[in-house]
Each structure stands twice: as structure tokens, then as C-alpha cells.
């Protein structure tokens, strides 16, 4: 115990200091989840909470991948198509045979790597703005998924493939149940946190997003950093796709809208668009908040499509309040 004079003021100043470090999205999530819990108490039980985490895990993973691209100053809108391609490609490659699952997942990550690298190369070397480049890539990947499946994918993935999204371990001490998806979520977000906030690479990503010219003069290889960011984003999309494949059947609409949801989640989590600022904690908390909001809309009985509307309003108000704070700071 190193009690010094400074720690005497702990109750107030320390509390304020901690409050300043807590991401606003965490507070938003707690509030939203409390309302969800009031309406439907089963969400407050450990199993209910675990189930909520399981279902929001893909979005949280996508958000922490998207974060790398956003922090580097770009956007990755091709994520949604890559999720769809992962699910459809998974069912085509695995061909209902559980023995194929492992190499199928490997191949899917290979596809993700290629798509992410292509995104990065187009933005870095052909200099197409990422919002257009990745929208174009979205059309390409969507088209490829449709072509591969002949336009009408159907059926389910093999059971051991679906385990990543679906399997729940029972009789776990303390928490009772533990979905595999939550394990994947923890591993992925820890890796993302480590990559963005601990390694030199993470600092380079922020430097590139903040001011690419300055980063270059300081010796950062801007193109390589950007390509890596897009690859990480694509790999998160494949991870999310593998999990979503376990949730439901194989369809062409699995991924639709997910890229925008991931961006919205990051924005809620205080990530600054056009680069330079953001945190994995914020992105994940933002994803949970968004999913809690969707759950709430569902419980209240509003139609699914109003999700888009809510998301649009959130996107605008979060960015507007960020811009307002920036202008009135100091």
C-alpha cells in the first residue's frame, strides 16, 4: 500500500477522474439494458445476459474490426457482403459434411484476407476514396456470392460449423451457461484491443488516420498500415459471418446492413470518423448499446424496419454532438 497525500482526496476527485475515463457508450448500454430488463426480467438473469451477449457478439466483433479502418481515416462498407459470402461460401464448401468444416473455415479466412487486401490496395494505390472503393467491392462480393450459390442458397451449415454461433456450454460455475460465441467475442476483442492500444502498429493506425502526411514524414509506411487495417476489418467480417451462420439458415440477406451497424456502433462508442481517435472498449460498448436498442424496439413491438430509422438518427446525433463538443472544447 503506497498511501500518499494525493490519495486523501480520492472520494471526489478520483471518482470524477474515473468517470471521465468511462466511455459514454458504457453508460448508454447500462441504461438501455436496464430498461430492457425492466420490460423483460429474464434478460437480467445470467442466462439471459449470456444469450444477449451471444447474439450481439457478431456485431461487436464487426465493430472492433471496422474500428481499425475508421481509426485510419477510412470506411469499410464491404463488410456486409463479406459476411454474406462467408455464410453462403461456408455452405457451398462444407457441403453438409462436418469433416469439411475446418478447412472450409480456413478457406473463408483466406477469401477474407484477399478481399481486405484488395480493399486496402485499391484505396492506397489507386487512390479511390474508401467509401466508393468499398461500396464497389460490396457489389463485387455480393455478385460473387450470388453467382457461387446460383442465386438461391438454402439449407444449413454442418453442426460443428454452427457451434461457433449456437453451442452453449451448460453447468459452468458462477455464470451457469457459457456460449462459445461469447468466448470467440472475448478472444477477438482482446486481440483487437492489444493490436490497437498496445502495439506500435496501433499507434501507426491512429497516426495515419490523424494526418497521413505527417505520419509518412515520421517514417510510417502509410499504405502498408492502411492495407493491414482493411485486412483486419475483413477478417472480423469473416469471424462475424462464421458466427451468424450458426444463428440461422443460409440466405442472401444475412449480412445486409451490418457494415453500417458496425460504423454506427463505433460512432456511439466515441470513435471519430475520418480517423485519429477511438477505442475498442468504445466500439464494443457501442455495439452492445445498439443491440440493446434493437432488442428494446423489438420488445416494444415496433417493426424491424424501424431499426434503420433509429440507427440513422443515432448516427447523425452522435456525429453532430461530437462535432459540437469539438467546436466548444476548451
Amino acid at each position: 500500500m503506497t498511501t500518499t497525500a494525493a490519495s486523501e482526496g480520492w472520494p471526489r476527485s478520483r471518482a470524477i477522474a474515473i468517470a471521465k475515463h468511462v466511455n459514454a457508450a458504457v453508460v448508454v448500454f447500462v441504461v438501455l439494458y436496464a430498461i430492457v430488463g425492466l420490460l423483460q426480467p429474464s434478460y437480467l438473469e445470467p442466462a439471459g445476459f449470456m444469450n444477449f451477449l451471444r447474439r450481439s457478439a457478431p456485431l461487436a466483433i464487426l465493430a472492433s474490426g471496422q474500428l481499425f479502418v475508421l481509426a485510419a481515416g477510412g470506411f469499410d462498407l464491404s463488410m456486409s457482403a463479406l459476411v454474406t459470402l462467408t455464410v453462403i461460401g461456408g455452405s457451398m464448401l462444407a457441403d453438409n459434411n462436418p469433416d469439411n468444416t475446418w478447412w472450409t473455415i480456413g478457406a473463408l479466412y483466406g477469401i477474407g484476407l484477399a478481399v481486405g487486401a484488395l480493399n486496402g490496395l485499391i484505396v492506397s494505390f489507386l487512390k479511390a476514396p474508401s467509401i466508393i472503393a468499398t461500396l464497389g467491392m460490396l457489389l463485387c462480393v455480393d455478385g460473387a456470392a450470388m453467382m457461387w450459390s446460383g442465386g438461391s442458397p438454402r439449407g444449413y451449415l454442418p453442426d460443428n460449423f454452427r457451434a461457433f454461433g449456437r453451442l452453449v456450454l451448460h453447468d459452468v460455475p458462477v455464470i451457469g451457461t457459457f456460449p462459445i460465441a461469447v468466448g470467440v467475442l472475448i478472444v477477438f476483442t482482446l486481440l483487437a484491443w492489444w493490436g490497437l492500444h498496445v502495439t506500435v502498429f496501433g499507434q501507426r493506425v491512429f497516426a495515419v488516420g490523424d494526418n497521413p502526411r505527417a505520419a509518412e514524414l515520421a517514417g510510417v509506411r502509410v499504405s502498408a498500415t492502411r492495407v493491414a487495417a482493411f485486412v483486419i476489418s475483413a477478417l472480423s467480417a469473416v469471424t462475424g459471418g462464421v458466427m451468424l451462420g450458426g444463428f440461422g439458415g443460409v440466405s442472401v440477406g444475412v449480412g445486409s446492413g451490418l457494415a453500417l451497424q458496425a460504423i454506427a456502433a463505433c460512432v456511439i462508442g466515441g470513435v471519430q470518423l475520418m480517423g485519429g481517435r477511438g477505442s475498442v472498449v468504445g466500439a464494443v460498448a457501442g455495439a452492445f448499446s445498439l443491440f440493446a436498442l434493437f432488442t428494446l424496439l423489438n420488445l416494444v413491438g415496433l417493426p424491424q424496419s424501424l431499426r434503420d430509422t433509429a440507427q440513422g438518427l443515432i448516427l447523425i446525433s452522435a456525429v453532430a454532438s461530437g462535432a459540437w463538443r469539438l467546436r466548444h472544447a476548451g
Binding site: F75, I131, L260, V267, L273, M274, L302, P303, S305, L306, R307, D308, T309, A310, Q311, G312, L313, L315, I316, V319, A320, A323, W324, R327
Partner: peptide
């Protein structure tokens, strides 16, 4: 007025419109 990046502003408005329409 609100100084929101035009990409995000119009993306958001587009989502609002699409949501209301599809609902």
C-alpha cells in the same frame, strides 16, 4: 448547421427514410 460530415449526414437521413418506408 450541425457540421456533420456529409457522408454520415446523408447516410443517416437515407437510413431514416428507408426505415420509415419499409415499415
Amino acid at each position: 448547421g450541425l457540421r456533420v460530415n456529409p457522408l454520415i449526414a446523408t447516410l443517416g437521413v437515407g437510413l431514416v427514410l428507408q426505415g420509415l418506408l419499409s415499415a
